[in-house]
């Protein structure tokens, strides 16, 4: 089965991470950017799977009695 060109290059975060590593930036700036990339991946997943709509199990057991 033919592999699509994007898959060879990696996902957008991996591609961007390589660009950051290649770019002339201070180590601290690179580290800050990569931290943002990781957080962006998390948020991207949360939005795609609508994770913010998932209730923790503990909520289902709450009884408002007091």
């Amino acid at each position: 089965m033919p592999t699509e060109p994007e898959s060879k290059a990696g996902n957008p975060s991996e591609i961007f991470t390589k660009k950051v590593e290649e770019k002339e930036l201070s180590a601290e700036t690179k580290s800050q950017i990569l931290e943002h990339v990781m957080e962006i991946d998390e948020l991207e997943r949360s939005i795609s799977f609508m994770e913010y709509r998932v209730f923790p199990e503990s909520l289902k057991r709450l009884v408002f009695t007091v």
Partner: peptide, 13 residues
């Protein structure tokens, strides 16, 4: 939150 992160990241880049 996502847009804010990308904006901060792109600003550094």
């Amino acid at each position: 939150k996502l847009f804010n992160r990308i904006y901060r990241m792109a600003s550094l880049f």
